[in-house]
Every structure is written in C-alpha cells, then in structure tokens.
Design a protein around this nucleic acid. Structure first.
Lengths: 269, 269
DNA sequence: ACAAAAGTGTTCGGCTTACACCCATGT
DNA sequence: ACATGGGTGTAAGCCGAACACTTTTGT
C-alpha cells in the first residue's frame, strides 16, 4: 500500500458507504454526571491500520439508506437502535488519505441506556465515553462532534428523549439525562416547570422511589407529542416503531451479525 | 421502457448523483411581495418523461460533492452560486419508480437577485416562482419544500442574507427580503431594532434614496459577523469566497456549460 | 401643506434565570 | 428531629409583538 498508486486510485469511481455514530447513555457512576458512550471499531487495513473508527459498511443495492444503517448497527453492537437519523454525507476525495475515493452517508443513532461494563466484549469493537475518545481514523472525529451537536439539538423531541429515559420516568431522571447530553448543569426547578409547561408530558398516576425519600411522580410522553411543530413533510429521524418495520424487512439481519464488525466505511474489503 | 425489467434493475448497484435546488430572489412586481424563483429542467427520458425536475448530474470521481454541485449549477443556469449548502441525501430504492436505484445527494444554492424575465431562455430549462411550481418528477417536490424550509432557517446567517441583498442595503430592503423568504409580513419597526441590536450590521455612512422621500442609511454586514455562534467545526454552507476557490479548481466548467442541462439526477444517459 | 418613507418610544405579555422556600418521607 | 429529595413561589430581566408617534425629505 505505497504512495505510488494513489493517483491511479483517485480516478476510480467513488464507493458509497454508510457510517453510523451510535450513542448509548451510560449509568450514573458514583454520583457523577452520566455520560454518552459510543462503540468504535478497530481497523484491520491500511490506511489507519489499528486505529479506531466509526462502524460502517458498504451501501448495498436494493436497501434504503436507513436499512443499511440499521444493519450496520445490528452487526456491530447486537443492539437494535431506538432512533436513527441521517447526519451528513461526506465526499471530499481527499478524506480517504490514500484509500479509494469514498462517499460516506453518515447516520447517528440511539440504542438506549446501557451498562457498558456488562456488554459482552466483541472482537475489534470497544465502547468509549464521549469525553474520553481515542484518536480516530479519517475525519471521524469531526463526524462524532457533529453527531453530538445534533443530539443536543434534539432534546426537545420525544422520539429522542424517550429512547434515553425509557417509557416512564421521574422529572429528576429526565433532568439527569438532559444534563448528561447538554454537558452542563441545568437548574432543576426551572427545568421542571419548563418541561411540564411544554405540554408534552402526562402523569401516569404512579410514583417511584429512588432512595428512601419521598417518592416522585412518574410521567410519560403524551401520545400526540411527536407531532413536529415546524415543518411536517420534511426528512425526520425514525423512532423505534418505524425502525421495527425496517427491521422486519431484514429477516436475516441477525444471522449476518458480525459480518461487518471489522469493517469501517472508508475502505472496502 | 416497460414494467418487465423493473425487478432486474432493482438489484443493480445504486448510482450516485448530485441534485440542486437553486434559488434566486425575483424583483418586486408592482408593489407585491418579492418571490423566490427556481430553475427546473424538463426530463427527456422515462420515467417522468416531459415532467419538470430539479437539475442534477452524476457524481464524478475525483470531485468533491460541493464541486459536483457547483458544476451542475453552472451548467444549468450559467450563473455562479453565491452560497451552497448540503441539504440531504435521498436513497430509498422505491423513489426512482422504475428507474435505476439512485442515491441523490441534494444541495441548495443561492444565485443572488435575478430579473427572471431577462434571463436568456435555454432549451429545456425554465424558471418558476416558489408558489407556482408545476408537478415535479420523482420526490422532487418534497426536496424543494425541504430546501425552502432550510433557507428560512438561515436568515440569521450573513453568508446567506448577503447573497440575497447585495453588499450594501437599507434596512427596508433587508426587511423586504426577509418577508419574501419567510412568506409572511414582518413588523418593520421591530425588525429594524432587532436587526440593529444583533450587532451584525454597521453603517456605511452613505445614504440611498429609493423614491423621492427621505433617504435611508446604508448598511453592510460586519466583517466578523460570519463567525458561527454555535458549533465551530461543523459542516457549514459555502459562501462566495469559498466557492470561488472551488470554481478555480474547475477551469473548464464554462466550456462544458449546457452539457448537463438536459439531465436530471435520477436517471443516467 | 401633504404624502411617504425613515426612524423612535412605549407598553404588554411570555419566557428564562436565579434562588428562596415549603412539603413529604424514612431513619 | 433531621436529612434528603420532591415540589412551589417569586422577583428581575430579556425579548418579541403591537402600534402610536416624531422626523426628514420632495412635490
């Protein structure tokens, strides 16, 4: 893989791949703020041999972009995403740095709350906290930063938040999630009022006690809270229900699990 | 082009194209609100033969996505865009409706203020006002709606607004542009205060008289107003200066003008 | 003087912020 | 009683909407 053949490769037709930034919300370690975790894949080829990279795979004919992203997720994490949204398409021919010219259609996804230590380790896959990422291959660091930025701008969407807190939750739990994603402290009293005033929540009637103090009211998102306030017919992310339909159209997805786990988007086998 | 070969085509590898939604700000017709205009291309092939569609062309190897979009623009309008931003990538295999499975990387662009009636007519290219569009091929109507939505959310960016009003302008002109893009009336007095309070404008010291009334102060955007307030290293649109560099890397662009004018993204020759 | 546009003031309500405070519960 | 978290109150400040108003200019 010398430098000599770079100029030849540069004229090849670009390959198309789908790359995913996958987020999971980690547990609350000893009273600290919770963190976002994401799985990375170790590269087994040049360029960037042995570096960590975002999971990805080639775009296969006959599959929608979302389904390709879904399959990538399933094969690298064995988890089913609860939310999936297109992020950006990168295609600068310089970005593959000696590899084949590559167009990467990037997605970001949520897989819910995960106890990272309990995930069964997989070959060449590891999870990292968002504030302790290693050096990444290609321009993947930029892509991760962009994905985090997007997630932070989606905290007003029930589709997204529901995936991070579960179906029912106390306002304090919701608050903790917001602080974890925003990466900054948020006044609890004001958060409470603002959130209730949004009209997106309803009480379940039940209560939950966390420590041994007064139990807190449990809430859920109203069924009609997903209606987009702004533009209706615009490209949106997919929530768990929509994704299950995508998954249903992928009957053999689990059998192929692992087949892509050593691949990353920006190189072909 | 019968139905019989659809299933065969479905398994082909997807083609990649670049599609652009191009906006120009039309003149103020007899005191009415100004409108956005956009060029469309008449299809010369099935499917959707003779329908209007967004201009586009295949993604060529060795070119960045932006440069491909830039070339598409130059060849269909003979105008140089002053702003260019990626919109979304569409890739559902169903969308080509009998054509070859197609991935379209969509961009939107501004080409400044245009007197549509003075544009020299081109074969198979025509300009339409945004509120009087014809039926569009494929899912192009959705793409246009999304592009308009995005433009409306970019009115706080000097890069974008500068392209619509020119280098210097009165507050009333700026106000008229905002109303045209937002598609709704905006209180002039409040607009004036809000805009000045943003700190992005500075007076040129000169004045301009439009009718025969009191002349208005001329403003320009401050040189440092382009600094993104939010995320710094995130994918952004390209303004005129950055695009000129892209164009410089495209020496033969004008010679090829017209070569793509009859193409649209979702079909290959 | 009048018309038309430039430009200013003022009031109102909604929403965010900061922070003090009371309430419920188990040890 | 007291600690801990659940939940409420309140005052200050910012910002946009609405709209009345003054100023400047040419005819």
């Amino acid at each position: 893989m010398g430098i000599g053949n770079v100029s030849e490769r540069r004229d090849e037709a670009p390959r198309v791949g789908v790359t995913s930034v996958i987020f999971a919300l980690g547990p609350a370690d000893d009273g600290e703020r919770r963190r976002l975790w994401l799985p990375l894949v170790r590269r087994v080829r040049e360029p960037f041999l042995d570096a960590w990279a975002l999971p990805g795979g080639p775009l296969k004919a006959g599959r929608s972009l979302e389904r390709s992203a879904y399959e990538t997720l399933a094969s690298t994490t064995d988890l089913h995403p609860g939310y999936l949204e297109q992020l950006y398409t990168f295609g600068d021919p310089e970005r593959s740095r000696g590899g084949v010219p590559m167009v990467s259609i990037c997605y970001w996804a949520l897989v819910g709350q995960v106890d990272v230590s309990s995930i069964e380790p997989r070959h060449n896959v590891a999870w990292f906290a968002d504030d302790a990422l290693p050096e990444l291959a290609f321009d993947h660091r930029r892509i991760v930063d962009y994905a985090i930025w997007r997630l932070r701008h989606r905290l007003d969407m029930p589709k997204v938040v529901r995936e991070l807190v579960g179906a029912t939750f106390t306002l304090r739990e919701l608050h903790a999630v917001s602080e974890a994603v925003e990466g900054r402290p948020i006044d609890l009293a004001n958060f409470r009022r603002r959130t209730l005033a949004s009209g997106m929540l309803e009480e379940t009637g039940e209560r939950r006690r966390v420590g041994r103090q007064r139990p807190a009211a449990l809430y859920r998102f109203r069924a009609d809270a997903d209606a987009p306030a702004d533009g209706g017919a615009l490209p949106q992310g997919f929530d768990a229900g929509e994704l299950s339909r995508i998954a249903d159209a992928t009957p053999a997805a689990h059998e192929h699990a692992g087949a892509l786990s050593a691949l990353t988007t920006d190189v072909r086998p």
